[in-house]
């Protein structure tokens, strides 16, 4: 996977040292106040906003040459966003890359947490589009900041209640709000709510970067993260009620893929590394290719 040696024209991991120090200070303050959004002076990056400029800056500030980097985009290692960010750091930092979750020391992710449990030597960096969980309820930054200060999160509970009144259940299925360590309500980035339980008590360090919105926040390891809910409508981590058609996994998060214009469809693991690994270990799904060279 090492498709490049570091380009000598760039500083290590692209950013200049003063920028990295600024980001590193913001990360440490974020770690010290779990779930609080630390403002930082986000830089222009050589990719458009919305392509993970916040995550890229956090990754650049954390990378060391010994790292093994994995980048996923909605669980996939092989989509444009993941491939281009992985190559960016292979070129500017010369780090080794991998697609295997267990082998990675730093994982940058867009909108998924890997199925394979993380371990203590890992850092998970999230790309965040809108870091403020209250933003769609209250557009003014001055007001949302005051609401966080006063721990006034009633508006969020009203929103979840209105979901129940309208749909009979909490209809929020991604970017599901969480409360961190009993204090700050946090947007976990648009991960499916299926992934929310993995946020809590993770042995890995979780860092969140929002480039356009200029915010960094963090979850230290073993931090209690609770999805907001009601006693009579408890939080459930939902997924499509199917099994993976390629590897037969029952407990992984699934993508629905339309296969023709006659209503044909298949469900596959969103986490490509998890699915590939299961297939390599002989697991089969409904639409798996027959085992080649098998028993005659």
């Amino acid at each position: 996977m090492n498709d490049a040696t570091p380009e000598p024209a760039y500083n290590f991991a692209y950013l200049d040292e003063q920028t990295k120090r600024m980001i590193r200070r913001a990360i440490l303050k974020g770690i010290a106040v779990p779930g609080y959004q630390v403002p930082f002076a986000s830089r222009e990056m050589p990719m458009p906003y919305g392509w993970g400029t916040g995550g890229v800056q956090v990754t650049a500030a954390c990378l060391v040459p010994e790292d093994r980097l994995k980048v996923i985009d909605q669980g996939a290692d092989d989509t444009t966003n993941a491939v281009s960010i992985r190559r960016f750091f292979a070129r500017t930092a010369g780090v080794a890359t991998t697609t295997r979750t267990a082998d990675a020391t730093l994982i940058q992710t867009r909108h998924r947490i890997p199925e394979t449990p993380l371990h203590a030597g890992q850092i998970l960096v999230y790309q965040v589009p809108i870091p403020e969980p209250l933003r769609f309820l209250e557009p003014r930054e001055t007001e949302t900041r005051k609401m966080h200060e006063l721990e006034e999160y009633g508006l969020m509970h009203v929103k979840l209640y209105e979901d129940i009144a309208r749909h009979g259940q909490i209809a929020t299925s991604y970017a599901y709000p969480v409360k961190v360590s009993g204090r700050y309500v946090m947007d976990p980035s648009p991960i499916p709510k299926f992934d929310n339980p993995k946020l809590s008590d993770s042995p890995a360090i979780q860092l969140f970067g929002a480039g356009r919105e200029q915010r960094i926040y963090a979850l230290p390891p073993y931090t209690k993260v609770v999805s907001l809910d009601f006693d009579d409508h408890p939080f459930t981590a939902s997924k499509a009620a199917h099994v993976c058609d390629l590897c037969g996994a029952r407990a992984s998060y699934l993508d629905e893929v339309i296969t023709d214009d006659l209503g044909g469809r298949m469900f596959v693991c969103s986490d490509t590394d998890f699915c590939t690994d299961r297939q390599a270990h002989g697991k089969r799904g409904r639409l798996s290719a027959p085992i080649s060279g098998g028993a005659a």
């Binding site: 990295k20 590193r24 990360i27 440490l28 770690i31 010290a32 500030a61 954390c62 060391v64 850092i123 360090i205 963090a218 230290p220 390891p221």
Partner: peptide, 10 residues
């Protein structure tokens, strides 16, 4: 920084 990050996070 990675060592300091680890120290502060743990």
């Amino acid at each position: 920084f990675r060592a300091i990050l680890d120290a502060m996070a743990r």
